Amino acid sequence: MEPLVFDGVGTVQVYETGGKLKFLDDKITKVTLQLQFDWQKVMGGDSGYAFHYTAQDLADKASIEIPRYSDILAELSQGAESEKGTVNFDETEQGFLDATNGYTLKAPAKFGGTLVATSDKVYLKDKDTGKLTELTRAAATPTAEQYVITADGKITSDSANDGKQIVVTFKWKKENATRSMLSGKRRPKPFKLVHRFSLVDDRDGKEVPCQLTIWKALGGGTLDVSQERKKPTSNTLSLEIMEPDITPENPNGYAVEIIFGI
């Protein structure tokens, strides 16, 4: 085949060892595969050249750069455990006590969640010093040192606190949410990676379908969940290439395969 210039990105597919599709992303920014073969020289006599070379362990390097987070990516790169279910969020809000309507918490309604009972704490905030004075929860008819909160998050207090600024800390819960859990004993599981992309044949300008397959890989690298203003994060999934099993799909037990539709 004619030489091709590698300048495509394409999509990445990750399959579990049983063949089930685990991860698919078409917004990757970089896929790297650097194949490396090294020798150890065996010297002897007076010559400056080696008379034998002993092959060293293969040092192939592969990585994927992805500019967004997913719980599946956390599983692949860090061995995280993911689950769907009900989760609690820790929230803080600031507002003012209206003489008629008090103050109603915004986060539960905004995100379709519900307030966790008895998780709330309310503080009066001094407008000059910023000092916080904690109020005590009451069942009904609060004094100036107390507040009442309903199940939907409406807070009221004594008329002496009308117009005053409050700080509220509370928990709210949401069903059918996603949780990524990372243990100190975590370890990623092996997977098969397929990088499907296309290149352009400079001879005739036609698109050439290409595919990189790493038959058995182990994840690692840096999963970046930090936040910085006006700067997106980028995650690097480093791959350790492993010796694969011999299967009907890979009868020769190749570790890496690159195919070109030309």
Rank of each mutant, 00 (worst) to 15 (best):
I72W: 09
L105F: 13
D128W: 05
T118I: 09
A80F: 07
G79F: 13
D90R: 07
N101H: 10
A80H: 02
D90L: 15
L115P: 01
S70L: 05
L115Q: 02
S119V: 04
V87H: 03
Y69T: 05
L124D: 03
D71M: 10
E75C: 13
G130E: 01
Q78A: 07
N101R: 04
A109N: 10
A80I: 02
T118N: 15
L76F: 09
Q94R: 10
E93H: 05
G130L: 03
F96N: 08
V122R: 04
T92S: 14
L115W: 09
V116A: 13
P67F: 08
E65A: 13
L73V: 06
T92P: 04
E81Q: 06
D98N: 14
T104A: 13
D90C: 10
V87K: 01
N101T: 15
L97D: 03
D126K: 00
Y123G: 01
D126E: 08
L115R: 01
T114G: 08
I72C: 14
D128M: 12
G95Q: 02
D128C: 06
V116F: 12
V116P: 02
T100N: 11
A99S: 14
K84Q: 14
Y103E: 02
E93D: 04
I72M: 15
E93Q: 09
N101E: 11
E83H: 04
S70A: 05
E93R: 02
G112M: 07
A117Y: 06
G113D: 06
T129L: 00
G130N: 02
T86I: 11
S77W: 07
S82T: 14
S82F: 10
D128S: 13
S77L: 09
S70T: 15
K106C: 03
E75L: 11
D128N: 10
G102I: 13
E65T: 06
T100Y: 09
E83D: 09
T129Y: 00
V122F: 14
T118D: 15
Y123C: 03
Y69Q: 03
N101Q: 11
A74D: 04
G85L: 08
G113C: 13
V122P: 03
P67W: 05
D90N: 12
D90Q: 12
I66M: 04
K127Y: 06
Q78E: 07
V87F: 10
F89Y: 12
G95H: 03
I66H: 01
E91T: 12
L115V: 09
T118Y: 15
K121Q: 15
L76R: 00
A109V: 08
D128E: 14
K131T: 13
D120E: 15
I66P: 00
P67R: 00
I72F: 13
G79E: 04
R68L: 11
S70G: 06
N101A: 12
L124G: 03
D128V: 12
Y69A: 07
E83T: 11
L73K: 00
D128I: 12
E91A: 15
L105T: 07
G95S: 07
L73Y: 02
Q94Y: 14
T114A: 14
L105P: 02
A74E: 06
S82V: 15
A117C: 06
D120N: 14
E65M: 09
G102E: 02
L97Y: 10
A107L: 11
Y69H: 03
A74Y: 05
